[in-house]
Simulated assay, not measured.
Amino acid sequence: MEEDITTELCVLQSHLDGILDRVYHNSLTLKRLQAFEMRLLGLNSLAEMIEFILGETKDLFDLDIVSLCLLDSKDDISTCLANDNYQFQTRAGLLLAKEEALFKQRFDFAHRPLLGIYHAENYGKFFDLQSPSPSSVILAPLIRRGKYLGSLNLGSYRPDRFICNMATDFIEHLASVLSVCLENILTFETMRRTSLVDPLTGVNNRRFLEQRIEEELDRSQRSRDPLSCLFLDIDFFKRINDGHGHQAGDHVLASVAGAIKKQLRSNDVLSRYGGEEFVALLSQSDQVRAGEIAERIRMAISALSIQFNQRDIPVTLSIGTATFLPMAGKIQVAEIAGQLIQTADAALYQAKHNGRNRVESGGSIDVAWIDKDC
């Protein structure tokens, strides 16, 4: 009898120890989750948030694979990340989905996490797998105000890590917090982008240029790569407004901006400077390269077929170029930024003076040249 009681007590003690271990483990997980949330709330950009989620979630839950699939039906996210020079196309674990149907097909029945054994036909689109496939997964929908933002997808090489009857309280809570943070930061990024984009042409505005040019000069100085500036102006734009009307002029501006942008790389910066003037910053481009790109743009615009109210509107561009050559030592970035634009503007004036529809080079500027000029 005493032996039976002793055995039962040992079993009960073992169960109690197991319960206490789980309580302790859950308490630690909760503390780590709270620390995770506090850091998440302090992030200032979408790129920072993506990096944090993909890196820290893996450590938080001791996972083998983590992916973040975001709905980007209007290319707002990709545009935002590109403007911040974030290499989203090659970031492992990040997927941008065009269609909301991807999430509706998986989550519309319960709006709750899906978990279980990994099947490529069901879950393959939620993972960017460059390594072995997970054995078990959990997919948590990111939903805010009834709309899908994306999903957080976790994978393990252990088949028993995520099973159908396990509790999902922690992951549901995390998904809710991520959804709120993601919505807030997307709203902020949209407002920021709107304030820095010219609404008529859809390219960056002068305010954006004034912020970005100093960043580009800093990058040029660190990498020792040249930075070139193009100053572009539509020839006889006043005649277009006077002869065809201001709506036609607006149409020309938007068409020309789109055509210029097609001739530039994704890491180049195009801004509407004012009126019919545009400025482009060409990273890693010397004087010769800048001239080639400027000539390519000029030819593309002169070949452009623009119509408004069934009337053809011929358009040409005059372009001035200038190139910054980095040197050793500290530089006065604001001073060089002004000189670079001023030199390209002077070359543009020369192109106008020499007959328009042409490219003129203002040459190269460097720190020593500026000091001497000053």
Rank of each mutant, 00 (worst) to 15 (best):
L139V: 04
D345N: 15
Q339D: 14
A97D: 08
R265A: 04
C229T: 01
S27P: 01
N204P: 11
V180H: 02
K352S: 01
I313M: 14
I301Y: 05
C374T: 07
A300V: 13
L270W: 08
Q287W: 03
A257I: 10
D75L: 05
I365N: 00
L270F: 14
Q307K: 14
I319S: 15
S67I: 04
Q287D: 13
A259M: 11
F188Y: 14
R91N: 02
V11R: 10
I341L: 09
R161D: 09
F52H: 06
L60S: 14
I5W: 06
G93I: 00
S27K: 03
G355T: 11
R356A: 06
R32C: 03
M38F: 13
I331A: 01
D198L: 08
R91D: 02
D76S: 09
N85F: 09
S14G: 13
L174G: 01
E277V: 15
L129P: 03
T7C: 12
I185A: 01
E189F: 00
I301T: 14
L232T: 04
I19P: 02
D198I: 09
A120H: 11
A351C: 09
L209G: 04
D84K: 01
L71P: 05
A120Q: 08
L30D: 03
A351V: 05
Q287I: 15
H173F: 06
E335M: 12
I117T: 11
F324V: 04
L154A: 14
K352Y: 06
D108T: 06
S176K: 15
L40Y: 01
V66C: 04
A303K: 05
L43V: 15
A346F: 08
R219A: 02
I143T: 06
L139C: 07
H111Y: 15
I50G: 01
L41M: 01
R112G: 04
A294F: 01
F231Y: 08
L230P: 00
M299N: 13
P199W: 10
E48P: 03
D345V: 08
A347W: 01
N165H: 15
M191F: 12
N357F: 01
L149E: 01
D4G: 11
N354C: 04
Q284S: 08
N267Q: 10
T323N: 03
S14I: 12
T6V: 08
L174V: 07
R145E: 13
I163G: 10
